[in-house]
Amino acid sequence: MLLTDNDLQSIWLTLRLAGIVTVILFLVGTPIAWWLARTRSHWKGPVGAVVALPLVLPPSVLGFYLLVTMGPNGPVGQLTQALGIGLLPFTFWGLVVASVFYSLPFMVQPVQNAFEAVGDRPLEVAATLRASPLNAFFTVALPLAAPGFLTAGILTFAHTVGEFGVVLMIGGNIPGVTRVASVQIYDHVEAMEYSDAHRLAAVMLIFSFLVLLVLYLWRPSPKNT
């Protein structure tokens, strides 16, 4: 594989983005998933639908809204400016924020399913053994839901690596800052550098296949418990 420095830079940037987004989503997505799995509130439907929106929305819609709301005249843009952070579009952290929204369902849904599969019983047993709700969450629910977390983490990471439309719309294609691998491939194609495009595209293809292979090989067959 003869990748240029720019290609390697874009791969490194992509991995860094996907890694940070996955960590943030573990922290943000777990409480949402827990709430969705346990609540009887009539807000469950609307919140679940909002979480699932990025699955359905075209990236151009998400990218457009993010560009406008994070811009100098948008509400998020005015907030970040007031906080002294500046504007988020064209920055690495802007991509992180966008990707957190974009990959949210890939974290929440598997974790929610895992929590639902754990059910009430183990938590009730823990409570009778005088475990506090927080204690029961960390020592009972989390370990039992671990497979769901692994699936969610892998899917979130891989989905962020595969992001393109949103990044194109708010990234501004800055080398080392927002030019991720998918955009780099697009650039190669546009510039008619097809052999460069092929090499990087092959790396992405192999990576994606391996990730999914691990996921499918590892996923245990359904148990009858």
């Binding site: 560009l67 406008v68 504007l87 064209f90 194109l168 501004g172």
Partner: peptide
């Protein structure tokens, strides 16, 4: 797209 970056005030 370049125009869009400027038009939205992001650049």
């Amino acid at each position: 797209q370049t125009f869009q970056f400027v038009g939205t005030g992001n650049a």
